[in-house]
C-alpha cells in the first residue's frame, strides 16, 4: 500500500462520491416520505397491486413485500438504492486501472518505484474508502428517513441493520467484478457504458428471475444474493447465496491481481 497513490486516488473520486451520496440521500428521503400515504391506504394499495399481473409484481420484487410495514416499504426503496450503488461500484471497478490506460497516465505511474501489487492495493483501498463513505451516507439517510416518516409504526432494528450491512458485500462484488472485466478486455475506452451495463444487467437478470422463478439466474446476480424482500421476510441472509457472492468477489480480486501484475501496459497511439 502506497499512501501517495491512495490519497491521489481518493481525491480524484471525491466529487463523484459527493454527487452519488447526495443523489442517494434524495432518493431515500423523498421515496420514504411517501410511506405514510402508502401505510394509511394499505388495504387499498394491496388491492390495487393485486390487479397487476403476478409476473409484473415479481419483476419489481413486490410479490414478497408488504408496503404497509416500515421495512416492507423500506425494502422497496432499498432495491433502487442497490441499483444506484451497483452502478457506482461498477463504475469505480471498471475505471480503477483502465482510466490510467485510456488517459495514458499509466506510464507515469508505473515508471515510479512502486510494484504493481502496491498500485492495485492502494487503488482498491481508495475506491473502497469512497464506497464506504457513500455507504455511511446511505445508513444515515435511511435512519433519518425512517425516523421522520414512520409515524410510530414499529420495525425490527436488527433486520434493518442486516439490510444495511449487506451494502458492503454488494459494493465489493461490483467493484471487483468490474475490475476483473476491465482487465480481461483489451482496452476499456469509456467506463460508463460498461458500468451501466453491469449494474442494470444484473438488475434486469434479477427481475427476470422473479418473473420466471428460475433458479439459475439467482446464482449470478447480487440483486438475488442480497434480495431485500427476502432479508426482511426472513430477518436473515440467504446464507448459501451470500457465500457464493463472497466467493465470486474473492475470485475476481485474485484474478485481477494476477492479470494486472502480468499486464503489458499498452503504449500511446
Amino acid at each position: 500500500m502506497n499512501a501517495n497513490i491512495y490519497r491521489h486516488e481518493f481525491r480524484i473520486r471525491l466529487k463523484s462520491v459527493i454527487i452519488w451520496s447526495l443523489a442517494l440521500t434524495f432518493l431515500i428521503v423523498f421515496f420514504f416520505s411517501l410511506f405514510p400515504v402508502f401505510a394509511d391506504q394499505a388495504a387499498l394499495m394491496n388491492e390495487f397491486l393485486a390487479r397487476y399481473p403476478q409476473e409484473l409484481r415479481a419483476a419489481f420484487g413486490m410479490d414478497n413485500m408488504d408496503l404497509a410495514t416500515v421495512l416492507g416499504f423500506y425494502s422497496f426503496v432499498f432495491m433502487f438504492v442497490q441499483l444506484c450503488l451497483a452502478i457506482q461500484a461498477s463504475n469505480y471497478g471498471f475505471g480503477l486501472v483502465s482510466i490510467e490506460e485510456s488517459e495514458l497516465t499509466a506510464d507515469f505511474l508505473l515508471s515510479k518505484p512502486v510494484s504493481r501489487r502496491q498500485v492495485m492495493t492502494s487503488k482498491l483501498l481508495a475506491a473502497l474508502t469512497s464506497l464506504t463513505l457513500t455507504n455511511l451516507v446511505v445508513w444515515v439517510s435511511s435512519f433519518v428517513a425512517i425516523t421522520l416518516f414512520r409515524e410510530q409504526r414499529e420495525y425490527e432494528t436488527g433486520t434493518l441493520l442486516l439490510l444495511l450491512l449487506s451494502i458492503v458485500i454488494f459494493q465489493l462484488f461490483f467493484l471487483s467484478v468490474g475490475l476483473v472485466v476491465s482487465l480481461l478486455v483489451k482496452r476499456v475506452r469509456s467506463v460508463t457504458p460498461y458500468a451501466l451495463g453491469l449494474g442494470f444487467g444484473m438488475y434486469v437478470l434479477s427481475a427476470f428471475s422473479g418473473v420466471f422463478g428460475e433458479v439459475a439466474l439467482e446464482l449470478i446476480t447480487p440483486f438475488k444474493h442480497l434480495d431485500a424482500p427476502y432479508i426482511v421476510k426472513h430477518a436473515a441472509y440467504d446464507t448459501p447465496l451470500v457465500l457464493l457472492n463472497a466467493a465470486a468477489t474473492l475470485v475476481a480480486l485474485a484474478v485481477s491481481y494476477w492479470l494486472y501484475i502480468r499486464r503489458d501496459i499498452p503504449a500511446v497511439s
Binding site: 480524484i12 488517459e103 495514458l104 497516465t105 506510464d107 507515469f108 515508471s111 500511446v268 497511439s269
Partner: peptide, 11 residues
C-alpha cells in the same frame, strides 16, 4: 523517464 508522448492527469 521522459516518454515520447507526455500525458498527465488533466485536472
Amino acid at each position: 523517464y521522459l516518454p515520447s508522448d507526455v500525458f498527465y492527469y488533466e485536472g
